[in-house]
Design a protein around this nucleic acid. Structure first.
Lengths: 149, 149
DNA sequence: CACCGTATGTCAGACTTCTGACATGAGCAA
DNA sequence: TTGCTCATGTCAGAAGTCTGACATACGGTG
């Protein structure tokens, strides 16, 4: 186990650290969601629908950071299992607004509590100011990355 | 396109923002790596090997945040294509130390420059102090998430 | 009106990554 | 020594996600 190499500049890369943090968060979420029989994307979809009922498949995909094809697969499963309901036909255009069923809402409740606990744990040891500046830093990175293609 | 809903607290969640930033970074990296015929994991593996020659499959997996099974699949492809070399048998134990071939080193050079440019773009508009505090914040989050299982 | 660009929902196939499992080898303790 | 624990490399199958493609529908401009 060669633990010590050169002064690997990966240790100084904010990009690498960002991926590391994101992975740690995903792993922690998977840990608490697995006992509930839920994946992270699964949960994300339900959470988005709880906060904005009527979102379309494509909107959900953007909100969960996956392609609309992936979200479609998930939505069909969630619909089949009774967590989500969509009209059979679009009232206007092709957009099918999705909604949580009572079962979906109930399932989300446990998951949401578990995920909130993870986020609280993640922020433990950070002051309000530190959280605020981290928030602004992440916003800035996102903006810069998306800007000049 | 209902863009305005309730005051979605996802907009205030550092966890959500973390995932958003990480996704933006991954997308930006994929954009510049695709013309080079490389994926992010592909690049990560080569970069790790450049900085710490002789890393094992399992070590590389941890460094690239994937399972050792996934890294093994990638490593076999990289070996087949001549980017990486591993001894046929372990000198001691089962660990097979991997190394970049000249071709791997050359391929990495272009990729590394492209990725560095992305990171520079990401940090544009942030002062040295802001970067430093973002660094500490991410480190803190990682530590807190991994600590109390 | 017709046209074109954009966005959506969906299907199909391929790729990547994961989980589960097994055998091997190092390290340590009894 | 024997036994136990942990880590590693690897194979096989399952699950998730992606790219590519198509038909459809809206919104603007000619």
């Amino acid at each position: 186990m060669s633990k010590e190499g050169a002064g690997v500049d990966l240790d100084k890369s904010l990009g690498y650290l960002l991926k590391e943090a994101s992975t740690a968060l995903r792993v922690a979420m998977e840990e608490v969601l697995r006992p509930l029989g839920m994946t992270v994307t699964h949960y994300s979809c339900l959470e988005l629908l709880a906060q904005r009922p009527g979102m379309s498949n494509s909107e959900l995909a953007r909100g969960a950071f996956v392609t609309r094809q992936s979200m479609n697969v998930l939505l069909q499963a969630l619909e089949r299992d009774g967590y989500v309901a969509r009209p059979a036909e679009a009232a206007v255009g092709k957009v099918l607004p999705a909604q949580l069923t009572p079962r979906g809402r109930q399932s989300l409740e446990e998951a949401s509590a578990a995920v909130r606990a993870v986020e609280v744990r993640m922020l433990a040891g950070m002051t309000e100011n530190e959280q605020e500046s981290a928030f602004r830093a992440l916003r800035s990175m996102i903006h810069s990355l998306r800007g000049p293609a």
